[in-house]
Amino acid sequence: MENITQQIQAVPLDHYLVLSSLLFVIGVMGVLVRRNAIVIFMSVELMLNAVNLLLAAFSAYRGDPAGQIFVFFIMAVAAAEVAVGLAIIVMIYRNTRSIDVNFLNRLKG
C-alpha cells in the first residue's frame, strides 16, 4: 500500500489536475455536442471518472483515505444511475425507434 501511494506521488499533483480537468472538459463537450443519448451518458461517465481521478490523487497526496472511499461510492452510484438511464433510453427506442436527443426539441424549454 505504501508503495502505491509513493508511486502515485511520483507524478506531480499538477499533472493529475490537468489530466482530470481535460477529461472533465471532454465530458462536458460530449454532453453539449453529441446528439446520441448513449454517447451523452458515456460523456457523463467520463466526467465522473475525472472526479474519481482527482479524488484518488488528492487522497494519496493528503494521506487521507476518505477520498478513495468516496470513489467507491461514486462508482456504485454511477452504475445505478446508468442502469436507470439506459432503461429509459431503451423505452424511448421502443417508442420512437431512435435514441437521438433531437426529439427533445419537441418539448419546449
Binding site: F41, V44, E81, G85, F103, L104
Partner: peptide, 14 residues
C-alpha cells in the same frame, strides 16, 4: 412522459 424522463435523467446525471 418518456421524453420528460430522458431529459430529467440526462440533466440530472450531468
Amino acid at each position: 412522459s418518456a421524453e420528460a424522463a430522458v431529459k430529467y435523467a440526462l440533466f440530472g446525471a450531468l
